[in-house]
Design a binder for these strands. Structure first.
Lengths: 218, 218
DNA sequence: AACTGTGAAAACTTTCACAGCC
DNA sequence: GGCTGTGAAAGTTTTCACAGTT
């Protein structure tokens, strides 16, 4: 398979969310132009993105919403349920625990860890918080993805342990740069950096000059 | 001023966080190579990024940590305090409210809004939650940035009102594509998309093939 | 006639490589 | 000698434009 741009994968997520929505509303068919408009990109981009993975449309007609949903779910690996563990039951961690949308998308949080003895054993959505020392044991049970929501100083240590336990995908909320070995995928959600991006835009009056509707976004 | 890549601005945030840390630890000077290694990029990239904004290093010596911190703070607009409002006092919203790191970086949450009458008047960190109906009045008081942490269906409506009130920077946590007029900057934090990116990587065995340390990251 | 799929062109970003300064 | 700043080259992503299918 050819090399797929990172940005393409990001857009596939957007397309998928949109298409599910349209499907729920009974839309059965749409063109690349319509999908592009709703997802803030161009028709050519939509077609190119999809073309990396196969051919899903019908010339002259467009795409079947349901078929495309099915195809995208397959491409993105969203047909199976992913087993997720959460490390860090602080503010962000507990916010995530309550975020039912994740479960709906097939990401099920099966274990929660914290370092603070005061929190151990407390129950959250049917899970009881385990001590961080048990991380290795619990991960051995077949966790696919670990979400790291601990303070910046502790994050690299946690990631190292998690990777050593065989986990190959990590979502990091700590505002720090982490290192993982090849073969492990790490994504970082950094709201401080996003806010700083807004600050930059405000002082530099940056924006993609464009017409009325449909503006700067990142 | 020339056009600055989006990605450059993102890296400046990373450099800045790192440099502050080094400064606290008493490091006074470093080379582009050292900064690059710590931030997961290359020396040439560091130099190119900085070169968009001026010349900050000394040939043969490298960069003064404190000078570079000062320069970056200026470039990013982080010398002033930004006045922030939060719309949506649900799980994510309240997690953000308690996130002291933001205040430390100069982003001060000055108002909180929610739609739920049961939450109105409740106090959070010295702020009392206001009804969403008062959004326009309160924003008139000089809010620079609005954080949107409401359900997806409500987000576009909130953004429209916020923009109409003159706010020019929005950070969106709702998992949906929003539209803002030109002149307004919108950033979206979408953890569902990040998780889907991990799912994609897991099923497609994707990773930038690279040597041992220092791997795939996004 | 409408709309996709796709090579080729354009635009953008990163890396290279070296002249220039400390 | 060591390291920056930067044009030019390489690499990557997006856009164009059109042949091909329904």
């Amino acid at each position: 398979m050819k090399k797929i741009p990172e940005s393409t994968v990001g857009r596939l997520s957007v397309y998928l969310r949109l298409l599910r929505d349209l499907s729920d509303r009974g839309v059965t068919t749409l063109s690349s132009e319509e999908l592009a408009e709703r997802s803030g990109t161009t028709a050519a981009q939509v077609r190119k993105d999809l073309s990396f993975f196969g051919t899903f449309g019908k010339r002259g007609l467009g795409y079947s919403v349901d078929e495309l949903v099915r195809a995208l779910r397959g491409i993105m690996g969203l047909e199976k349920t992913w087993r997720v563990a959460l490390v860090g039951a602080g503010k962000i961690g507990t916010a995530l625990l309550g975020y039912q949308d994740l479960r709906r998308q097939g990401f099920v949080i099966e274990a929660v860890f914290d370092r603070d003895p005061a929190k151990i054993g407390r129950r959250w959505n049917g899970l009881s918080i385990q001590p961080e020392s048990q991380l290795e044991d619990a991960l051995a049970g077949g966790i696919d993805i670990v979400i790291v929501a601990v303070p910046a100083e502790a994050a690299q240590g946690i990631v190292d342990r998690v990777v050593k336990s065989g986990v190959r995908a990590v979502l990091n909320f700590a505002p720090t740069r982490l290192t993982v070995p090849a073969g492990v995928t790490l994504k970082t959600v950094n709201m401080a950096a996003e806010l700083e991006g807004l600050s930059y835009a405000l002082v530099n009056e940056v924006w993609r000059g464009n017409d009325a509707e449909d503006a700067r976004e990142t």
